[in-house]
């Protein structure tokens, strides 16, 4: 970390460095968190010197200067500022999502049970392993299960599907070998995982997709009604840790969430929806992109060569995202994959 950098390496006159050392201000962070007056008191330096110190330390801490938005979209943009996307594995859904899920912050996929959340995430965990030129990340996946055991059988089925659909790219990849699964049963082990195990894994292996299935399961059961404040605090901590992992390692972080019914309080809240993602405001403040899945009453008729299959139509709804308008589209879960459909074809 640059903050622990020794003050002695800064380009400052020796007498100032001496004064800082005498005041036991050895790191950049300790200098920056003091106000000018405090700094002047502790080091007995004049205001001008304090200004010089602050400038030098600030320069030291910042890895780069401002960059114009113009440069951000050019190829020479610094790699950590490039906005990469993970394709959803279906061209139609990708078009709707403007190319896929953002490698920025935390993406939440919420939905009632059996709305296709896990299916969607399993598909993403295969897609992430594909090469970059077809929208993958060419990297492994960390899958953290809290609700149920990992659906290995279904994964195998989807692997068969992807090998059939993209034989050229997918044939050489050993998909199930690159999904690291961790089963977590309580909040305590969640902390251990997010603080220690996960960063270690990301350091050792090339993991670029992290899926938590689901955050809600842990945080909805382990807290009493009178521990709401504690829960909000813990969720904030989790959110920040995930943001940090996404930033430090350049990973897509996806959290699955459950939904709760809204009790209309008569106030002016966002009562347009009857059902909202659970875990409350403290958590949603930290969600960068929020997607909700739900089942509809429509049925999609798929005609394959041998037989006709009827599939329930599901809805994918963007509630908010920095680059997408609130909108929705439809998809179905077939034995082979999750894919988008337009409602007019073969629906009833």
């Amino acid at each position: 970390m640059p903050y622990s950098k020794e003050i002695g390496n800064l380009l400052l006159p020796p007498r100032i460095v001496e004064a800082l050392k005498k005041a036991k201000l050895n790191t950049c962070k300790s200098v920056l968190t003091l106000s000018d007056l405090e700094l002047s008191k502790q080091t007995k330096l004049s205001q001008r010197d304090v200004y010089a110190v602050k400038q030098a330390v600030s320069q030291e801490v910042l890895p780069r200067s401002f960059i114009t938005a113009y440069k951000l979209q050019l190829p020479e943009c610094p790699p950590d500022l490039v906005i990469r996307k993970l394709s959803s594995g279906c061209p139609m859904l990708d078009q709707f999502l403007r190319g896929g899920l953002l490698m920025r912050g935390v993406t939440e996929i919420a939905g009632e049970s059996a709305s296709g959340k896990t299916q969607f995430c399993l598909q993403l965990s295969l897609q992430a392993q594909l090469p970059e030129y077809i929208g993958g990340l060419n990297a492994a996946v960390a899958y953290i299960c809290t609700e149920d055991s990992f659906p290995s059988k279904r994964l195998q089925q989807l692997i068969q599907g992807i090998k059939k659909n993209k034989p050229h790219e997918a044939s050489k990849i050993n998909f199930s070998d690159q999904i690291y699964i961790s089963q977590i049963g309580d909040v305590e082990s969640m902390w251990k995982c997010v603080k220690v195990t996960l960063p270690n894994l990301l350091r050792l292996k090339k993991v670029k997709l992290i899926i938590i299935d689901s955050v809600a399961a842990l945080f909805r059961c382990e807290y009493d009604l009178n521990q709401i404040a504690q829960r909000a605090h813990d969720l904030q901590t989790l959110g920040h840790l995930l943001h940090k992992i996404a930033l430090d390692f350049g990973a897509v972080v996806i959290c699955i969430n459950q939904v709760s019914a809204v009790v209309d309080q008569g106030g002016r809240s966002n009562v347009q929806e009857k059902i909202v993602p659970s875990l409350g405001l403290a958590w949603s403040n930290l969600v960068t992109t929020r997607v909700m899945l739900s089942r509809t009453s429509y049925v999609y008729k798929e005609t394959t060569t041998q037989l006709k299959v009827y599939l329930p139509v599901r809805k994918l709804q963007v509630l908010y995202a920095p680059n997408l308008p609130p909108n929705h589209t439809y998809f179905v879960v077939t034995p082979d994959c999750v894919r988008g459909i337009s409602l007019d074809e073969n629906c009833s």
Binding site: L32, T33, V57, S58, V61, L62, S65, I67, A69, L81
Partner: peptide, 19 residues
């Protein structure tokens, strides 16, 4: 005409404000 900076934590934010 848009000068962008991505701040990773509060120390960086303090430093940016200083410069």
């Amino acid at each position: 005409g848009i000068h962008y900076y991505r701040c990773q934590d509060y120390v960086e934010l303090l430093a940016v404000v200083n410069i």
